[in-house]
Design a protein around this nucleic acid. Structure first.
Length: 307
DNA sequence: AAGACGAAAGTGGTTGA
DNA sequence: TCAACAACTTTCGTCTT
């Protein structure tokens, strides 16, 4: 596996975790995020072994959904699209394909615009190309199913991006999407729910720990605090403290506590701002954490030290 | 004076009759 | 379709550092 970074600059460890989906390299020993905006080295496309034909076709430049005319046009509805659909949806898909050929020019126009908007937003958020690719694919499917009708193109783009982020465990908050696209948070959430439902895309609730690296670096917290807060989240999950709660709130509270314990206190306000939740939510989660976990002693220890 | 705390009322979405 | 409900927010007064 090609990698630019060989050693953790913080602790010198060679035990690095290269997460290509997130575009991050993390040191397994000290938790330092060494590179979080790296290039994605992988092929953007996976081979699906059920599709021998698709493999044959795949010579020359890689097909990509981020370019409206490459592999699209009258060729929309390639078999690779079907890999996540069942038999019922397949028939539908073939019908749509026929349709598609008739109105392909209109769709091409739409896609051209939409995909450039998608690129703009995704580069604003510095998303890895795998996510951009996925979002393009989702958007393309949405257009083919006519889901954009009655909705603004931009909001569907944002919804597709949000869904792609979630699928790749590289979650961005709705606030971030909203800031990047100038679409209201509500609207993005609405279209996100709509298109994932209509396209039958299953998305698991995101893991609070996925937010830690980003929040922590925004708050300039040390690697120890980071890994500490991930531990806290894991403990909390073990006691079922996390289900049904907003993942960002949990991440924020864990980070807040970890910072407190490690003597790098940040105010609730600061943490709340980067996590996109309110102080109240942090307090609530924080209180639950103290109740259920054995953290009170540690915090008291810190307090005594100060006095 | 700033930060932390918590009560109360409001919001938008989900669920179940 | 509507009401109950959970999670979260906003707002605001009070306590702590």
């Amino acid at each position: 596996m090609p990698s630019i970074v060989k050693r953790c600059p913080e602790c010198g460890s060679l035990n690095l975790h290269h997460n290509k989906e997130k575009g991050e390299v993390i040191c397994r020993d000290c938790g330092l995020v060494i590179e979080d905006k790296m290039v994605d080295f992988d092929q953007e496309w996976r081979e699906f072994d059920s599709e021998a034909a698709a493999r044959k076709r795949r010579t020359g430049a890689p097909m990509t959904y981020t370019q409206f005319d490459q592999g699209l046009g009258t060729d929309v509805g390639r078999k690779a699209d079907l890999y996540k659909f069942g038999g019922k949806a397949k028939n539908k898909f073939f019908r749509l394909r026929k349709w598609q050929q008739r109105i392909s020019t209109a769709i091409e126009r739409n896609l051209k615009l939409a995909l450039s908007e998608l690129k703009r937003v995704s580069s604003f958020l510095r998303l890895p190309s795998s996510v951009e690719e996925e979002a393009s694919r989702i958007y393309t499917l949405a257009v083919q199913k006519g889901l954009v009708r009655g909705r603004s193109m931009e909001s569907v783009v944002s919804g597709a991006l949000y869904a792609a982020c979630r699928r790749h465990d590289v979650p961005r908050t709705l606030d971030e999407l909203s800031e990047a696209s100038n679409i209201e948070k509500k609207e993005i959430g609405r279209t996100y729910r709509f298109i994932t439902r209509e396209l039958g895309i299953k998305i698991l609730p995101s893991n609070p720990a996925d937010y830690i690296a980003r929040f922590a670096s925004a708050l300039k917290l040390t690697a120890e605090t980071q890994s500490r807060s991930v531990e806290i989240i894991e403990e909390a999950q073990a006691v079922e403290l996390t289900s049904g709660r907003g993942p960002t709130g949990i991440a924020a509270a864990a980070l807040y506590v970890a910072a407190l314990i490690n003597g790098e206190k940040r105010t609730q306000r600061e943490v709340a701002d980067v996590a996109g939740v309110t102080e109240v939510t942090i307090r609530n989660r924080y209180k639950e954490l103290l109740d259920k976990l054995e953290l009170e002693k540690e915090i008291k220890k810190i307090k005594k030290k100060k006095v």
